[in-house]
């Protein structure tokens, strides 16, 4: 039994189409686990299925031995959450108010305003993503990258033991990408279980402790980056030729694309 996330033989159908076909995966506490694969491989669906946001045909999802799908939404939201790929809104909410949304699962119906603990957790989360200076700005006036970081802060305010993220670096510049992944890395080291979908293979290689490669709704490889990021697997899944080098400083895999010419 895993102390972390354990997905066993999960299948998801959409009409007649099979989106996920008996996928297994584990993600351990203290580690950043990366989910990679081409567009349409089923990464987003898998993340959603784990939190009961996509209807599962068969299979089980548990965390620390507890069935995740059997618990109430509110209970689940108290220890697991998900950061979507892009989250826009027209609501007139300040950055602080958006982060405070993360405290909803802990508040009662009769409570009129957030508690002092809620407010301090929200501020700590904003500080963690380096957005505290923007706390009183209206969310919809922020740039795409800033909004992304605020969404991560919202998730952190939920104090999740399991944090799922779908392409958390997609709107970010290089500096913000690295800062975000470093933050997630640090969260994992503090005991969190982190599972994220990533497109950029070099970021996946550099930051993830374990990788899961999805292709056409199936898991085709899982393990440490150097076992998953091999020329043969990448050729088979992405249809591209690569040379896998070693980073001269940290020894992690470094993907070089074999371009013609």
């Amino acid at each position: 039994m895993s102390a972390g996330l354990s997905v066993h033989s999960v299948s998801v159908q959409l009409g007649a189409q099979t989106i996920l076909d008996a996928v297994d995966l584990t993600a351990e506490p203290g580690m950043v686990t990366g989910l990679i694969g081409p567009n349409g491989a089923g990464k987003s669906t898998l993340l959603r299925a784990i939190l009961g946001l996509a209807p599962i045909e068969s299979g089980t999802v548990s965390f620390g031995g507890t069935d995740l799908l059997a618990m109430t939404r509110r209970r689940r939201a108290q220890f697991a959450t998900f950061v979507e790929q892009s989250a826009g809104t027209d609501a007139r909410l300040t950055t602080r108010e958006v982060v405070l949304l993360g405290r909803i699962p802990f508040q009662t119906v009769w409570q009129v305003s957030p508690s002092a603990e809620d407010t301090s957790l929200a501020e700590a989360a904003l500080a963690a993503v380096d957005m505290l200076a923007f706390a009183d700005r209206l969310y919809h006036t922020l740039s795409g990258g800033e909004q992304q970081r605020v969404q991560i802060a919202r998730a952190l305010a939920q104090q999740p033991r399991l944090l799922l993220l779908d392409e958390p670096t997609s709107h970010l510049d290089v500096h913000a990408q690295l800062a975000t992944l470093a933050l997630l890395h640090q969260r994992a080291r503090a005991g969190g279980t982190i599972l994220l979908a990533l497109h950029d293979l070099n970021l996946a290689a550099g930051f993830c402790d374990a990788l899961i490669l999805l292709h056409d709704g199936r898991q085709v490889a899982a393990g440490p980056p150097e076992q998953v990021l091999t020329p043969a697997l990448l050729r088979a899944v992405y249809g591209v030729d690569v040379t896998v080098l070693r980073h001269p400083r940290n020894g992690r895999p470094l993907i070089a694309y074999d371009l013609p010419g």
Partner: peptide, 23 residues
């Protein structure tokens, strides 16, 4: 009126509301 906070959770759509524990 008592659903006010749950309505806030809808600011970012259904999925976001669901991850905040809203049925």
């Amino acid at each position: 009126l008592l659903s006010g906070r749950a309505l806030d959770a809808f600011a970012f759509g259904d999925t976001a509301a669901a991850t905040l524990g809203v049925d």
